[in-house]
Design a protein around this nucleic acid. Sequence first.
DNA 1: TTTATTTCTTGTCCTAGTTCAATGTTTTTG
DNA 2: CAAAAACATTGAACTAGGACAAGAAATAAA
Lengths: 198, 198
Amino acid sequence: MFEEINAYIKRYSDFTEQEIADFNALLQPKTVAKKTFLLQEGEICKFEAFIKKGCIRTYYIDHKGTEVTLQFAIENWWVSDIASFHEQKPSLMFIETLEDCELFLLSPETKEKLLSKVPKFERMFRLMVQRNLTRLQERLFQTIATTAVEKYLDFLERYPSIPQRVAQHYIASYLGFSPEFLSKVRTKLSKKSKTAKA
Amino acid sequence: MFEEINAYIKRYSDFTEQEIADFNALLQPKTVAKKTFLLQEGEICKFEAFIKKGCIRTYYIDHKGTEVTLQFAIENWWVSDIASFHEQKPSLMFIETLEDCELFLLSPETKEKLLSKVPKFERMFRLMVQRNLTRLQERLFQTIATTAVEKYLDFLERYPSIPQRVAQHYIASYLGFSPEFLSKVRTKLSKKSKTAKA
DNA sequence: TTTATTTCTTGTCCTAGTTCAATGTTTTTG
DNA sequence: CAAAAACATTGAACTAGGACAAGAAATAAA
């Protein structure tokens, strides 16, 4: 049951059997059907979720009603609205399952318990957030500095499994342009690759 | 000498006098003239710097030679390339002083020493990175979902002291559009506010 | 397996922001 | 304090991507 998540945490630190047992005891397993909201704008986020199985999307909705996807999370990723979770304040985002999911949840309370019982986890969470931050910095740079074609190609390379699992217009909303335009980008690219072959 | 930085850390946790003394002993004070690079692309980042006095900009340069500003850091902020610092790998960014600066530096080694001597700091650094991440998420959303005018107005509100300290084209490069267009946005806004007054 | 719903494509027209170039203004420096 | 350098403004022509609309394909549901 805990293989995946235990493999995950071991990448960050050497934990003893006891520490891992303590950790596992605090996790709350949960299965969720596809197309379910784990969090909606205005709610307070009560969880950090590790995805054992499934696919989840986090997104914002702007004042014109357009969705902006922040993250696609699949197996072995964590999802949460960290700001809302830690400060227990209303969230600005939506977290929605795109597939049936098997999750492990930590609540603010169980997370605190974990951290006080096994302080080593403090470091793991710091490193996780740091990696996240680094990636987001790169993504901001890319959002500002590259064209739609470049963004799409980079996405394909970086997350090759995602396009097979999620609808295309979600990818457009991740990359920051309209679904129509993504479609045009794709036809342009496929024409180009045909020409290259011919 | 340490008033500002000690006030800063106390916002995150209750430290004992001894812990604070240990912390201060590990800081390396440094003064740097304006227009100096603390880090250039390709180098490995050897510091996390707390700004006691001055102003610093971090930025990327894209393949067309355009600068994208990631951060303006002023008094009581930390600057670093976290990815490069922690993994000791070549950086993708530039860190440059815009004014004469008084800094306190931590090296990877002194930071590790600090964390093992006073593990409480682990939490502080986690919370710092978390706030950073949260802010960057908002900024990415805004970059994708709002117009130049909205971005500029939000910037003025959020960082009212920055425009008085840094050149306007740096602000444009932070907001993700050209300096010419920022200039046009500004004239449009000032005309509008004149009309409103008349 | 037919119908309904969601998703994807394609075309046309439109706009926010870019690029380039010229001029004016402020800041820096010798 | 003069000259140079850096910075800001303005305008004209251009382009990447958006909005809208309509049809085609694929998925889901009944």
